[in-house]
Design a protein around this nucleic acid. Structure first.
Lengths: 104, 104
DNA sequence: ACAATACGTAGGAGATTTCCTACCAGTCAA
DNA sequence: TTGACTGGTAGGAAATCTCCTACGTATTGT
């Protein structure tokens, strides 16, 4: 869980996930083209994402195609569950207060 | 957004959020009692949570009561939205494959 | 076989994180 | 007012993060 949040804490890595979501499977060079950063640094970010289980990779010729693996994000959503109940309750309270106000 | 994920990346800080969720508003000392860590370190963790907007604090006498502020977690849930659609589609694909198998 | 391409890893610099001890300011109670 | 209590901040050590350049390995095309 910490690994996943740590991976998501970096904007470059979130952008990598977004690219993989929108465009699907892609080689490293194609991903790197969209960042103002050297390719080895991107490789390191991809390693962090791999270690967190957020991407998987498989070689095709001399390329390595990366693709999204959303299961850890599902765990994040599960983790959020109890807090979601909390904020929904707060929204309900707010609505009650607003309903009780005069000249609505 | 990075601030929120960075705050959530640390297990001590996630545990602090959990305590505030389960027990509600609490002073620092009461929170600190549940960690094997010096109080100033906890204060620093609370500062990270405050800066991320995940907790708010107000003084009562010589204590400072901390409470949960779930709005940033709601933003996390919103951020997850597109990925959720992605994993739901994958689950649907998986079900289709399973449905198509012989001797089910 | 050789040059070019794709990508990872090594090693290092500078910033940041996470813990600590010491200390300071504000509040309360005697 | 003095002493105890609550909690933040200063400063520092060790680890980790994030970028870089240099280099190594595997694959492809000529």
């Amino acid at each position: 869980m910490s690994d996943v949040f740590t991976a998501l804490a970096n904007p470059t890595r979130r952008e990598l996930l977004r690219l993989l979501l929108e465009r699907g499977e892609q080689p490293v060079q194609q991903l790197a083209d969209h960042f103002d950063m050297r390719r080895p640094s991107l490789s390191e970010h991809l390693k962090v994402l791999r270690d967190a289980g957020l991407v998987v990779e498989h070689p095709v010729g001399r390329q390595r195609l990366y693709s999204l693996r959303p299961e850890p994000l599902r765990e994040v959503a599960d983790w959020l569950g109890p807090y979601e109940r909390f904020w929904r309750a707060r929204l309900a309270d707010l609505r009650d207060v607003l309903d009780g106000l005069p000249d609505e």
